[in-house]
């Protein structure tokens, strides 16, 4: 707080506009920056699918990863269909088995 801020408070004057500008910018930029580009999101989708595919058989083409924003909370939502065996069990890969997908 500066001398001017105190004087402004005492005189019940408006806060200096530079402070307002700084606060508004910090808020709007936090929001802007969370916006992932489609390219980056697609790259992330591929990498997430690759990691999951190491452990269970999934349908690489069907997997979807998206960003969902509600209020000021942003969530990364992944929808990864897992392939099932005829018996209905999930196909789990042996740990360490390399994936060719």
């Amino acid at each position: 707080m500066t001398l001017r801020d105190i004087l402004n408070k005492l005189l019940r004057r408006q806060e200096s506009s530079a402070n307002t500008a700084r606060e508004r910018l910090q808020l709007v930029l936090a929001h802007d920056r969370a916006d992932l580009s489609p390219d980056l999101l697609d790259q992330m989708r591929k990498e997430i699918l690759e990691v999951v595919a190491k452990y269970v058989e999934i349908d690489i083409e069907e997997g979807a990863v998206s960003l969902e924003t509600e209020d000021r909370m942003t969530a990364l939502v992944a929808n990864l269909p897992i392939k099932r065996l005829p018996s209905g069990a999930i196909k789990v890969k042996e740990h360490g088995e390399s994936s060719d997908n």
């Binding site: 500066t2 001017r4 801020d5 200096s16 530079a18 700084r22």
Partner: peptide
């Protein structure tokens, strides 16, 4: 304007 705090200062902008 920076001195009277009616403009973002150089530090404000480089920090942001």
């Amino acid at each position: 304007m920076i001195a009277s705090q009616e403009m973002l200062s150089v530090d404000d902008v480089t920090d942001i």
